[in-house]
Each structure stands twice: as structure tokens, then as C-alpha cells.
């Protein structure tokens, strides 16, 4: 009961802070000035006194107000193309993410338990890792037969790195006493892998996948923008939310840009929550701390 009470309080705080944010944004936007209120004009004067010219400063007044965004949102809400953008981005994120897990977890575990795999695989891995995923976009477009595959590949890449690093770190940090205990109780190597290394690494896999999921959303949107969203599937809406934003920008619909941004925020939040719940379900012993 106490926990529930605390939760509703936290929820109220969260709603309150979002409301305050929206109100400030609305005021700032309607003021049509670079900083929300005249009350802040002293700040502008001060900055100008230091040589900052207001034309170099961000202009909140140029951003559509939340009310205008809401109206724009209402317009696309029943537009199948908008939801198709969600679907396309979501499919790419989950595709890339699941591929990263499927390849990354076994590869990470192999790196952690086998000296040979580590010796051969790790130098290459470490060499490729510092290359940011977006730098892969052009090469990826050339390399993969379809645009769709090249976006999927770039989406996959960074989540893969994150998962592998977490799996290796998690497996290496398992206390040696657990191995000794398992050995002295007669565990074979395969058994130790299944019953010590796997569960011992699971918390790191969960953390790694949560981080990986966040990265996947970042990358997919950028990749959709860069590649022009020109997926052959489904015309413009086949470009996903990233292209939805880009397209709105090109089309001059600033309200829709914000709609796209918020949509990505919501989509990212939902995927993280899903993952968090699944992670908790996988690691019940961590819930008790």
C-alpha cells in the first residue's frame, strides 16, 4: 500500500512537471520572441552587452506552440501514412535490435569464455567500434542491395556493440567463487556455462539491451533522414518517423516536425518500458534489493 501511495505521488509530480514545461513552452512560443518573456529581457540585454547578437541566439518564438502541435497531431491521427511511419520505424528498431541480441549475445559470450575467439575477434571488434554508426550509412547503402537493408544494418550496428560490450563485461565480472563452488559440486564446463555464466551475465544483458534499444531509436531516425527515407516500400510513409520529420521540415510544416519528435519520444519510452518489464521478469532475484 505504501509503495502504491508513493507511486501515485511520483506520478503526480511527473504530470505536474510536464504541465509546467508545456505552459512555459506555450508562453514562449506565443511571445514570438527569442526568449519567452519580457521579464527575461534583462538577460537578453546582458547577453547583447557581452557581444551576443540576438540573431545568433535560439528563438523560442519560432517554435510552434503545444496547442498548434496538438492541432497538427489531431490532423495526422487518422492518417494511415503517419501510423505507417510508426510501423516502419518500429519494425526497423525491433528488427535491428533483435538481430543485435541474436548475434551480440552469443558473440559476447564466446569472447568472454574462449581465449581463441577473444584473440581473433576482439581486435577487429575494437577497431570497428569507434566508427560511429552514422558514418556507416553511405558505405552501407553501397554495400547492401536495398535501402531497407542498409538502414537495418546501421540500426543493428551500435546496438550490437553495446550488447557485446555488456555481455563481455558481465561475464568477466562473475565472482570466481561461483565458478569454484560450481566446479567443486561437480559441474561440467557446459553446465557451468549454462547455470553460472548465463544467469550471471543476464543482468548485464538486460542493462545492455536497454541501452542498446535507446541507441537503436537514435540511429534509426538519423539513418532514415540521411537515406532520404526513399524506401521502395510504402512511398514517403515508408521512410518512418525520421523521414516524417524530414519531410515535414522540407514541406514547411513545423507543427508536424514537433509531432514527429514527440512520437519518437513516446515510441522510445514504450520500447524501454516493455524491455524493462521483460528484464525484470528475466532477473527476478534483482527485484528484491
Amino acid at each position: 500500500m505504501a509503495a502504491r501511495k508513493f507511486d501515485s505521488k511520483a506520478l503526480a509530480k511527473g504530470v505536474f512537471s510536464i504541465l509546467v514545461f508545456l505552459v512555459l513552452w506555450e508562453i514562449g512560443s506565443r511571445s514570438k520572441q527569442w526568449i519567452a518573456l519580457d521579464a527575461f529581457s534583462w538577460l537578453r540585454d546582458m547577453l547583447e552587452a557581452f557581444g551576443f547578437r540576438s540573431k545568433y541566439l535560439p528563438w523560442i518564438g519560432a517554435i510552434p506552440a503545444p496547442s498548434a502541435v496538438l492541432v497538427a497531431w489531431k490532423d495526422v491521427l487518422f492518417d494511415a501514412g503517419y501510423w505507417h511511419s510508426w510501423y516502419m520505424s518500429g519494425a526497423r528498431v525491433f528488427g535491428g535490435f533483435i538481430a543485435a541480441m541474436l548475434v551480440g549475445i552469443p558473440f559476447g559470450l564466446a569472447l568472454a569464455v574462449s581465449r581463441t575467439v577473444h584473440g581473433i575477434g576482439f581486435p577487429v571488434f575494437e577497431l570497428l567500434r569507434p566508427i560511429p554508426p552514422l558514418a556507416w550509412v553511405p558505405a552501407s547503402i553501397i554495400f547492401w542491395p536495398t535501402q531497407e537493408l542498409s538502414i537495418a544494418f546501421v540500426t543493428f550496428l551500435d546496438a550490437f556493440y553495446t550488447v557485446v560490450i555488456n555481455v563481455v563485461g558481465g561475464a568477466k565480472s562473475i565472482d570466481v567463487r561461483f565458478f569454484q563452488a560450481a566446479q567443486s559440486m561437480g559441474s561440467s564446463k557446459a553446465d557451468i556455462f549454462r547455470r553460472v555464466i548465463l544467469p550471471g551475465t543476464l543482468p548485464s544483458i538486460v542493462v545492455g539491451s536497454a541501452v542498446g534499444m535507446g541507441i537503436t531509436w537514435e540511429v534509426v531516425v538519423a539513418a532514415e533522414m540521411i537515406s532520404g527515407g526513399g524506401s521502395q516500400v510504402g512511398g514517403t510513409s515508408g521512410g518512418g518517423l525520421g523521414f516524417f520529420i524530414w519531410n515535414s521540415y522540407v514541406g514547411g510544416s513545423y507543427e508536424q516536425i514537433v509531432v514527429g519528435m514527440i512520437s519518437i519520444g513516446i515510441a522510445g519510452y514504450i520500447s524501454s518500458e516493455l524491455l524493462r518489464h521483460f528484464g525484470k521478469y528475466l532477473t527476478p532475484w534483482l527485484r528484491l534489493r
Partner: peptide
């Protein structure tokens, strides 16, 4: 190591999972 000689350690080595 062998199950002939079981060790109970200085710190707990129960599997947390």
C-alpha cells in the same frame, strides 16, 4: 576440483540467481 572435497567459502558463494 571435485565433489569429493566440497568447499564452503569465507564469504557466501550461494548463487544469487
Amino acid at each position: 576440483p571435485s565433489r569429493d572435497r566440497l568447499v564452503v567459502f569465507q564469504e557466501t558463494a550461494l548463487f544469487p540467481w
